[in-house]
Design a protein around this nucleic acid. Structure first.
Lengths: 365, 365
DNA sequence: CTGAAAGCGCTAACAC
DNA sequence: GTGTTAGCGCTTTCAG
């Protein structure tokens, strides 16, 4: 039944063939298909029918070559399957589609080498722009607009202090501070912080260039929260755990079973929270009773858990869609370099923070 | 400090410029960069240095035009942010990268129209192949190799009965049957099935063409499980809920509070499980005690939940990587059309299925 | 309103 | 070994 012109493996029809069938030139055919005013309605009609008959599809490669744009953006993400990045990915894919762009996704798995490779490949494929979750706070030579041939760029989630590139992030300093404030106002004094990261470097006060910005902000916010309540920071209450669930669980077990163990834990993402819940189970600690918990990121299970988990809700979808918006501004005719955006987090107190003493109010500086 | 040739917005260097700088022809330059044997080591060196100096990046578009392949595959997925598809996406992106392919991702949000558009766009962009989670079991004219100019195709997760295209799926019939078998062997007789789908159509026995294959298989497996234990199917125990959490929760509340309510529930994915847990909370039903639960898909939170959830574990990562493998076989020099693959599920009994009567063994037909 | 032709940057077949 | 050249399929002046 199928005509040869459309059979499998048949080279798809070219514009020239459409033009021939419609008995016009390539130029006219092209104009007709792009609905140009310079073409007679009758001619347009003939061309459209010819295209339809041949099942014509423009070759976007050829178009991109002459037009100078691919209508494709690159997304370089640190870990797609992270419960946070997957929603962001979706936001980016959907938002970009609305603007007529498709998204070429590369996963770096938090490897700097992979990041460099990804950028090279996406540059070669001539993406019109790039959205990137950088994996290092201080190794960014490959991102410098003036050194490498990098397409217009937007950073998501993590900022890079010395790099003059627009970024979209969330106000994690306030998020962490507010979480600690909630703990302290309910009487907690031994408040732990579990930082989930595959990066080895730890927070160093006043040195935002050596830790991922998300981590830096959260640790700083944590300290600020303690300070506001006159609580002396105890380094042993801050733990860095790797993303692998098992290693995180054992590190946290150690935290929860140490002498003078914390009564409250703030975790930097929902995977770390799961590790805390797991460790609590293993050590027969009841959440919301023996141990209070707040986590960054409102995973779908957080509100269903018993007790429902209190969280620092980050506007993940908006993070992604804003990134696309910033990129589109750069791609627009204005060619403006947009300024960075910091979105607000929301502390949602659901039930995993118990009262252990009389209400306490912070003494903000 | 930056030379003009590499400054921002400067058109990236072309092969011709590299050739000029190295004082050779384009052809030689091209051969040198692809490390061909036909070039003197000395010449190679010169060309490489020239390329380096100009920060040369091949234009993959131009290469694709003459080479006839883009080294890009398209991924058309029904819902990226679904806890199941995000891992599959990652598997596909990672596996493809290992074969030197990048992935252009499009989300259809379960819309047939979006699916058709996605395929058109990806065809235009000349992807070498396509991995697709189809959103309809019976509307597939746009997927027919002999009707439309569709690139080599592999279906993931969902099969289409009458469409001769390789697919990768999991053995969900057995998964559902085994789950019901476990329930029944522990004495459950009122066993419900909660099907999470955005498709309106319901299961019709013997009609695998009108329901998504994943749903068809699971309902059939559920029935088979009941049959093996001599339990009469009760239509009121099978509920179709839409993905939106709130509507799912209310539908499930209705199920759990009806007269002669089920003592066990099997859910077709982890989102549905969350809705069941939520509804249980709202109605003060304790999981593993008042209500037994098994769910498809081993979400990260399932084993941390109390009691830990028993699940039908699907090999999600392998689902994705197998899809890439099947696609690569089609793209290979052999041009073989691989046969479909069905991966095995694993029933993991963790603790959300209680014993309500004496042990019972199935009477398999 | 329509057509002819010059690129876009690369690869590969064919000369030398 | 290296150079020349003809496409790949489209868009877009520039002529008419």
């Amino acid at each position: 039944m199928s005509s040869d012109s459309t059979a499998r493996n048949a080279r798809p029809a070219r514009l020239e063939e459409v033009a021939e069938l419609a008995k016009v030139s390539k130029a006219t055919a092209a104009r007709a298909l792009s609905d140009s005013d310079l073409v007679t309605p009758a001619t347009k009609q003939r061309v459209r029918e010819a295209a339809e008959a041949l099942n014509y599809r423009v070759n976007a490669l050829a178009r991109a070559m002459s037009a100078g744009q691919t209508k494709t953006i690159g997304l370089v993400i640190a870990d797609i399957s992270n419960s946070f990045f997957d929603l962001a990915t979706r936001a980016i894919v959907d938002t970009a589609a609305r603007d007529g762009y498709q998204v070429l996704v590369v996963n770096t798995n938090e490897s700097l080498h992979a990041e460099r490779e990804a950028i090279r490949i996406l540059s070669e494929k001539r993406v019109d722009g790039l959205i990137l979750v950088p994996c290092s706070p201080d190794d960014y030579a490959h991102l410098e607009p003036h050194r490498a041939p990098v397409p217009p760029l937007v950073l998501v989630d993590r900022r890079i202090v010395d790099l003059d590139v627009p970024s979209v992030s969330t106000d994690d300093f306030s998020g962490a501070r507010d979480a600690v404030d909630l703990f302290a106002s309910r009487g907690h004094r031994r408040i732990a912080l579990v930082v989930n990261t595959s990066d080895d470097r730890v927070y160093r006060e006043g040195d935002p260039r050596s830790t991922l910005s998300t981590i830096y902000d959260r640790v700083r916010g944590y300290h600020e929260g303690l300070r506001a309540h006159g609580i002396e920071p105890d380094p042993s209450l801050v733990r860095y755990v790797r993303p692998e669930h098992s290693s995180a669980t054992s590190a946290i077990t150690q935290l929860l079973t140490m002498p003078d163990a914390p009564s409250a834990v703030l975790t930097t993402n929902s995977d770390a929270a799961l590790a805390v819940l797991d460790a609590s189970n293993l050590n027969s600690l009841e959440i919301g009773k023996d141990l209070s918990v707040i986590t960054f990121d409102d995973a779908p299970w957080a509100r269903v858990f018993r007790p429902p988990l209190s969280v620092v809700q980050r506007p993940v979808y908006k993070l992604g869609s804003s990134a696309v918006r910033l990129l589109m501004e750069q791609l627009g005719p204005e060619h403006t370099l947009p300024s960075s955006v910091e979105l607000r987090n929301t502390l949602v107190d659901r039930g995993s923070v118990q009262v252990v003493g009389p209400p306490v109010t912070a003494q903000r500086a």
